[in-house]
């Protein structure tokens, strides 16, 4: 066997091993993580993709067979998660409000809708008596509505706002906050001050006057075109409230799509392997031809 053939074969063998190792590594991380961290809660299982929620520190998982409930008594907040077998958002949110013992027929103080990769997305805010507020995040997918309801006993409201430009300076942060206030139905609110919290210009704090009362807002860049915003009464809002965004992102948009990664690697190394195989076969055939021609030449044909 020639040196080239040996190298080609070694390459093919290595590709096969890499393929197996790569897939195992991609899935191994998740399995190891799942085994090590019992805090991972599976809200639901999609036929092709599993969605998990990692419970943030300080939050309690209240086990329930039909819905998920996370609570943080320090900040007086609960997160209800449920799957509603309907694409009617009103019905889905009403089910979530019922779980939280809140008036099901409540009209939202604000609403926002968008089309995400997995399906339509809605965000609704509610204000009830005695400072209780709620924000419902609803993702529709495959004829179902997945609802996360954030309930705060201290009138804190989290919102995800789509931004026209990346959140990178005071002006863009102010625009994002104005959008959030509009989504809350508080377009008359006055932004008193706004400043950057970090040199990276991806976190900002603001003071806002709503109906004559002082509120605090924190604005954080989440992606190029979205910002996470928390608005609450008083001079500051507890950081733990921001955990809702981690929960929302884990719940809605981080799927277990390792199988697609594995397929991608199989195709990559499969195509490369096929090409290397054709190179090897063509070389082998040429070497045979050359040997035959040399024999013929030596025989004087």
């Amino acid at each position: 066997m020639s040196t080239t053939s040996r190298i080609t074969l070694t390459l093919l063998l290595l590709c096969s091993l890499l393929l197996l190792a790569g897939g195992a590594l991609a899935h191994g991380d998740e399995e190891a993580g799942a085994a090590a961290d019992s805090n991972i809660l599976t809200f639901y299982t999609h036929p092709t993709e599993r969605f998990n929620v990692l419970i943030p520190p300080g939050w309690q998982n209240v086990v329930n067979s039909s819905y998920a409930l996370l609570r943080n008594d320090t900040i007086g907040a609960q997160v209800y998660g449920l799957t509603a077998a309907t694409t009617n958002v009103d019905e889905a949110v009403a089910q979530a409000l019922a779980l939280a013992d809140l008036p099901q027929a409540a009209a939202p103080s604000g609403a926002d809708a968008d089309q995400l990769a997995f399906g339509p997305w809605q965000q609704r805010t509610y204000a009830f008596d005695n400072d209780t507020t709620a924000t419902a995040f609803v993702q529709q997918h495959d004829g179902k509505s997945y609802v996360l309801l954030y309930v705060s006993a201290s009138a804190v409201q989290p919102l995800i706002v789509r931004t026209e430009t990346p959140l990178a300076d005071d002006a863009s942060a102010s625009a994002a906050l104005t959008s959030a206030l509009t989504a809350l139905g508080q377009s008359d609110a006055i932004i008193d001050s706004l400043s950057a919290d970090s040199e990276a210009n991806d976190s900002f704090s603001a003071t806002v006057t709503i109906d004559g009362a002082p509120f605090t807002a924190s604005i954080h860049r989440d992606s190029l075109t979205t910002a996470d915003i928390i608005i609450g009464p008083g001079a500051s809002v507890a950081e733990a409230n921001e955990d809702i965004f981690t929960i929302v992102r884990d719940f809605f948009v981080t799927p277990d799509n390792g199988s697609y990664l594995l397929l991608g690697l199989v195709v990559t190394f499969g195509l490369m392997g096929l090409f290397l195989l054709t190179l090897w076969l063509r070389r082998r055939n040429l070497e045979r031809d050359e040997a035959a021609l040399r024999t013929l030449t030596q025989d004087g044909v």
Partner: peptide, 16 residues
């Protein structure tokens, strides 16, 4: 597969 972190919105498939 091992060094780069998992992209939060796309999950593992982003590694492609």
């Amino acid at each position: 597969l091992g060094y780069a972190g998992t992209e939060i919105e796309q999950g593992d498939v982003q590694r492609i």
